[in-house]
Computed example of a mutant assay.
Amino acid sequence: MQKFSSQEKYLIANTLNCWPVMLQGHSVLMDLRNETSVAGVVDIADGHMTCELSNAVLIDRNGGQHPFDNFMVRNRMIRQIHIPTDIDVAQELRQAMEHGVLRRKRVDGRNTKRTFKQKRAEMRHKETLEMIAQQRSEKEQNQSNIQ
């Protein structure tokens, strides 16, 4: 398991920086700020969203494709990460909330009291999960009304 600094743990728990970490091992497409895109498998991602991709293909502005064995994307260059359709967003966030960096462990392995920041982060994650569930149910209702 990857070791994160306290700042990275905070960013992963409280921002969308958790997505590259959760997408490790998955094939993704990233749109970059210089109007190019890169597709590949996320090997390593840190709490600052710096990602290392393997078997990557860089797609330039003109549509030309350039293959790379390894490709590193700095956090400031990422404009958008396309999450694969086979990943259940709600389930991934729920797992990150339950097993992720929000849980503090003592040296002997037992849980300790959570800090205010951890409680607030967990509350925000729960709100996000509720919003996703609500949007999903509205989408299903709209599809059933159309049929």
Rank of each mutant, 00 (worst) to 15 (best):
L53G: 02
Q134A: 11
A133E: 12
V21I: 05
M123A: 07
H99Y: 14
R110E: 12
R94A: 12
P84F: 01
G64Q: 12
T50E: 15
R61T: 12
G64E: 07
K105I: 15
N111A: 15
D31R: 11
D69N: 06
S6C: 11
R79C: 04
D108Q: 08
D31P: 04
F68M: 05
S6H: 13
E52K: 07
Q91M: 10
K126D: 12
N55C: 11
E35V: 09
E138Q: 10
N111H: 11
F68N: 03
V107E: 14
E35H: 11
F116I: 12
A45L: 00
T15P: 00
V41M: 15
G40T: 04
M49Q: 15
M77D: 12
C51R: 09
N62E: 09
R124M: 13
K139T: 11
V21F: 02
A45P: 01
F68A: 04
M30E: 06
A45V: 00
T50K: 15
R106W: 14
R76C: 08
D31S: 13
Q91R: 11
C18S: 08
L23M: 04
E92F: 06
A56D: 02
K105W: 13
A45R: 01
E122P: 04
V57A: 06
Y10T: 15
V57N: 03
R33G: 14
S144Q: 08
R136I: 05
D88H: 04
R61Y: 08
A13C: 13
E52G: 09
T15M: 03
T128L: 12
F116R: 13
K126N: 09
A133S: 09
G47I: 00
Q134N: 10
K9N: 06
P84V: 00
C51K: 01
G109D: 10
D88P: 02
V42D: 04
D69S: 04
I12G: 01
G63E: 02
E52Q: 10
E35D: 07
V73H: 00
K139P: 07
V101E: 01
N34C: 06
C18N: 05
R110Y: 14
R124G: 04
V28P: 03
P84N: 01
H82L: 07
S27W: 11
V42S: 00
S137R: 12
A121C: 05
V89S: 03
I44N: 08
I59W: 01
H99W: 13
T128C: 05
I87M: 03
A96D: 03
T50I: 07
G109I: 02
P67S: 06
V107R: 14
F71R: 05
N111T: 15
A39D: 09
N142S: 13
N75A: 12
T15I: 01
N34V: 02
Q147M: 13
T50P: 03
I78Q: 00
R79Q: 15
D108C: 06
S5W: 02
R74Y: 06
Y10A: 08
